[in-house]
């Protein structure tokens, strides 16, 4: 096994890790804000991928150019989910966490079913796009262009999330996260902050969906696997920590790629799971978790 191959696989893993990190960041943002684990996160990724596919088919707009559009769409979906479902669970006195898990889980089943009903369960893909089919060569290391582009976009998402915390809304977000009740006293509309938080969280997963649509198959249950990895990523990085999601995403991408290379592609997730469990035994709140 040559060093170039190992390097190539490792870099590819890290790039994929950035995509995982973006999916996880959306989940972690929502969790950090209001302590809700969104079990429809994978289904929303799937929705974003189908949206990209449909818009591409209908108008020919390249996936890359669709980024703002799909992100906006998913932002709207996030706000709607908050308003329609999550806001109603907040007043539940007993087992609120459980109710939220299962409301979002029901939503996930519903969305997957809807996709299956509308588009069938066959794998589909976008064959002609700006990025598709190209690759970048750095010396002997060759990387597919869509993957590299995904990594770069992912970094921009994290940059955006980092800048967000400097904005006025970012501060309101922070204040709400710290004390849900008290913010009302300083004139912050909690409901609005939660709604926008959900919007941003699902817009992140929307961006990841668009980028994945460039090179990944599209099917009703495509989100399941990504969601699973996202949960592990969030728990590994620490619930609520965006930076933790980035670091954990990179770790997981790398470990997954190397396990596939050195052990067995069929067992690549085992590597992830082992790392995750090992870290949690040492740090029960993940790498950067406080809650």
């Amino acid at each position: 096994m040559s060093a170039t191959l190992i390097a190539q696989v490792a870099i590819g893993g890290l790039l994929m890790g950035l995509v995982y990190a973006v999916v996880a960041a959306g989940l972690s943002l929502i969790f950090g804000l209001m302590d809700v684990v969104n079990f429809a996160h994978g289904a929303l990724l799937m929705v974003a991928m189908y949206a990209t596919l449909l818009i591409h088919r209908a108008t020919g707009i390249d996936p890359l150019l669709q980024l703002p559009l799909v992100a906006a769409l998913l932002f709207g979906a996030g706000v709607a989910i908050y308003r329609g479902l999550i806001a109603r669970t907040l007043s539940v006195r007993v087992n609120a966490g459980m109710v939220q898990i299962f409301v979002t889980f029901g939503l996930s089943i519903f969305l997957v079913g809807a996709a299956e009903f509308l588009f069938g369960s066959d794998f589909q893909s976008i064959n002609t796009s700006l990025l598709g089919g190209h690759s970048l060569a750095f010396g002997a290391i060759v990387l597919p262009l869509p993957l590299v582009a995904s990594g770069i976009v992912a970094l921009f998402v994290f940059l955006g999330l980092a800048l967000l915390s400097r904005t006025e809304f970012g501060q309101a977000l922070e204040a709400t996260r710290e004390d849900h009740e008290a913010v009302a006293l300083i004139g912050i509309d909690r409901d609005r902050v939660f709604g926008i938080g959900w919007g941003i969280g699902t817009a992140s997963v929307g961006i990841a969906g668009v980028m994945l649509a460039n090179f990944y198959y599209i099917a009703p249950d495509v989100g399941t696997n990504f969601a699973l990895i996202a949960y592990v990523t969030v728990a590994l990085g620490g619930f609520g920590s965006i930076f933790g999601a980035l670091v954990a995403g990179l770790m997981i991408g790398l470990v997954e790629a190397l396990t596939a290379l050195f052990i067995d592609p069929a067992l690549k997730q085992i590597g992830i799971f082992m790392i995750y469990l090992a870290v949690l035994m040492i740090r029960p709140r993940g790498l950067f978790g406080q809650i």
């Binding site: 479902l85 109603r88 669970t89 539940v92 007993v94 087992n95 609120a96 109710v99 299962f102 409301v103 889980f105 029901g106 939503l107 996930s108 089943i109 519903f110 969305l111 997957v112 079913g113 809807a114 996709a115 299956e116 009903f117 509308l118 069938g120 369960s121 009703p220």
Partner: peptide, 23 residues
């Protein structure tokens, strides 16, 4: 008859029950 509708019904039922009867 149409793949997917069964999941939609099931998912909608879960959402409806969880919201209507959280306890």
């Amino acid at each position: 008859a149409a793949g997917g509708i069964d999941l939609m019904v099931y998912g909608a039922l879960i959402m409806a029950l969880a919201l209507a009867r959280p306890e």
